[in-house]
Amino acid sequence: MTYATNEPHLVVCVKVVPKPEEVRVDPQSRRLDRAGARSEINPPDLNAVEFALQIKDRFGGKVSILSMGPPFFEPYLRICLAMGADHVYLLSDRLFGGADTLATTYTLAQAVRRLEPVDLVLCGEESSDGATGQVPPGLAEWLGYQQITLVNDIEMDMSRRTVRGRRERQGGYEILEVPLPAVISVKTGCNEPRFWDYRLKPWAFAPERVTVWSASDMDVDPEFIGLAGSPTQVVGLEQAPSRERKRIMLSGSPQEVAQQLAARLREVLPLVP
């Protein structure tokens, strides 16, 4: 066995999202107004990048950042390079636009195929814009990879070619092991992403660090990408009620207040008796 086979190729799926509190629904057009919103790397994705870099610290190998989105994602994705990742692949094409989970996972999977051999694909738990958490299993299905979702700790064994993930369960935890290649989704906040390294920054911003693939650069079936490949349709958008704290004061005897609190808890917690 050569040393090189022990060096994993890790792919991290990263998305750039608008800061949630700055997104508005235009009351007239009923469309999403994210023009004024600042963007950031989807915070859970940074937890996934950190895990990939920890694996790289230990085993060496290569960390590829994979993202699908408009060209403005690019400078954000380069921050992952300044954290220690090796290369960015940005899937950018108008034809990819309007993709739902099915089309997104298909497109990402086709890119992963192109990047193979791949040992591990890491994703954040969910994106703050869509918040569905359905990309990791969908991706695993397209690729025929194993999956472990919502892990807060991972351990790779490159000689046995397995990965173990610990995930919290109601009142405890479990450790699952699957053979590589696998898709892992990482629980939000389970590690502290390292800050970007100023020494890597100039390197990270060199043009050749980012490869942009359009649909024609990839082996994709046009029927499966973008709006065309998306079975779901958005039929309406509304601004949700304000997320400001309600600041409602409850009053009464301890027993009365307790009844009111119990009722509130039942509203927000499914498991409360």
Binding site: K19, E40, L46, E192, P193, R194, F195, W196
Partner: peptide, 11 residues
């Protein structure tokens, strides 16, 4: 905790 402080300034 300190990397998070820098990230917060950054984002």
């Amino acid at each position: 905790g300190l990397p998070s402080v820098l990230w917060s300034i950054y984002w």
